[in-house]
C-alpha cells in the first residue's frame, strides 16, 4: 500500500531545492493565515491548482476530492453557526442566515482547503530524503530528521503487515466489518498486537545496525545526494517572498477581512 504520495516527474517544482519546498509550505500557511475573505483567497487557490496541473499531482487531488468538499462544507457551516453579525439576510423558521456569516464561513472553509492543497502538493513533489535534507538545512537536529524519515519508511511496512494479518484473520473466519463501533474497534486488537510485536523484533537489530554504521558519531553527517542551490531556487524564493508580502499587504489594507 502506497502511503507516501510522491509522483515522479521532472518539473520545475520537483527540481527545487528541498529547503525552498519546505519554505514554500510555510509561505502558503503564512499567506492563507492573514485573510478571511473568499475573494482574496481565490488567487492562491488557482495558483495551487495550476501548480497541481503543472506537476502532474492532479491524481492525488482527485483521490482526496471528497475530503476537500467535506472540509469546505463542514467548516463553512461550523463558522456560520458561530459568527453571526448584522441583520439576517435569509429568514428560515428558527434560523437567521446572515450574509457575512456565509462569506466568513466560506472563507474559513476555503482557507482549510488551501492548506490541505498545499500539503498535498508538497508530498506529491517531495521525496522523503528531500524532506529530511530540507529539515536539516533548517537546523532541525540530524537525529530528529533521521527519526522522521525512518518513520515515513517504516509506516508502509507496518500497514502491509497489518493488511496481511487482516487477510489471515478473515481466512480463519474473523469478521472485521460487523458489529457496533466499540465491537469493531475491539476487533482491531487482534491486528495491532502482531504488528506491534513484529515491529519490536526489528528494533534491537535496527539499533545495532545503525550503531555499526557509526550512527550519531557526527552531529552533521554528510549525505550521498547533494542538492545544489540554483538560480531557479533563488527565483522561486523571491516569488514566494512576494506572495507572502502580498498577502500580508492584503490583510494590512483591510481587503482580506470580512465586513459585516
Amino acid at each position: 500500500m502506497a502511503l507516501y504520495r510522491y509522483i515522479e516527474r521532472d518539473t520545475f517544482v520537483h527540481r527545487l531545492h528541498p529547503t525552498v519546498k519546505v519554505i514554500a509550505l510555510f509561505v502558503m500557511f503564512w499567506s492563507v493565515y492573514w485573510v478571511d475573505n473568499p475573494l482574496a483567497l481565490l488567487p492562491l487557490g488557482f495558483l495551487l491548482l495550476f501548480a497541481a496541473f503543472v506537476t502532474g499531482s492532479g491524481g492525488n487531488f482527485y483521490a482526496l476530492r471528497w475530503l476537500f468538499i467535506i472540509l469546505i462544507i463542514s467548516t463553512t457551516l461550523m463558522w456560520m453557526a458561530t459568527y453571526q453579525p448584522g441583520p439576517a439576510a435569509i429568514h428560515v423558521p428558527k434560523v437567521a442566515i446572515r450574509r457575512a456569516s456565509i462569506i466568513f464561513g466560506l472563507g474559513k472553509g476555503l482557507k482549510l482547503a488551501e492548506l490541505l492543497a498545499a500539503s498535498v502538493l508538497f508530498i506529491s513533489t517531495t521525496k522523503v530524503e528531500e524532506f529530511t535534507v530540507g529539515l536539516a538545512k533548517l537546523r532541525v537536529p540530524y537525529r530528529v530528521g533521521f527519526a522522521i524519515s525512518l518513520s515515513f519508511r517504516l509506516a508502509p511496512l507496518f500497514v502491509d503487515s497489518a493488511l496481511t494479518i487482516v487477510d489471515a484473520q478473515c481466512l480463519r473466519g474473523y469478521e472485521f466489518g460487523t458489529g457496533g463501533l466499540i465491537e469493531r474497534l475491539r476487533r482491531y486488537t487482534t491486528v495491532s498486537i502482531p504488528v506491534f510485536m513484529g515491529a519490536l523484533r526489528k528494533a534491537n537489530n535496527m539499533a545495532m545496525a545503525l550503531e555499526a554504521r557509526g550512527f550519531g558519531r557526527l552531529s552533521r553527517p554528510t549525505t550521498y545526494i547533494e542538492y545544489p542551490f540554483l538560480a531557479s531556487d533563488l527565483m522561486a524564493f523571491a516569488a514566494l517572498f512576494v506572495i507572502g508580502l502580498l498577502y500580508f499587504l492584503i490583510y494590512w489594507t483591510g481587503y482580506g477581512a470580512v465586513v459585516a
Binding site: 502511503l3 537525529r143 533521521f146 527519526a147 522522521i148 525512518l150 518513520s151 515515513f152 519508511r153 517504516l154 509506516a155 508502509p156 511496512l157 507496518f158 500497514v159 497489518a162 504488528v195 506491534f196 515491529a199 519490536l200 526489528k202 528494533a203 534491537n204 535496527m206 539499533a207 545503525l210 550503531e211 550512527f215 550519531g216
Partner: peptide, 16 residues
C-alpha cells in the same frame, strides 16, 4: 540509538 529507533517505530505504528 535504541530510543531513536523506538521513537521511529512508535511514530510509524501511529501513522500506519
Amino acid at each position: 540509538t535504541r530510543m531513536v529507533v523506538l521513537c521511529s517505530i512508535s511514530a510509524a505504528l501511529y501513522a500506519a
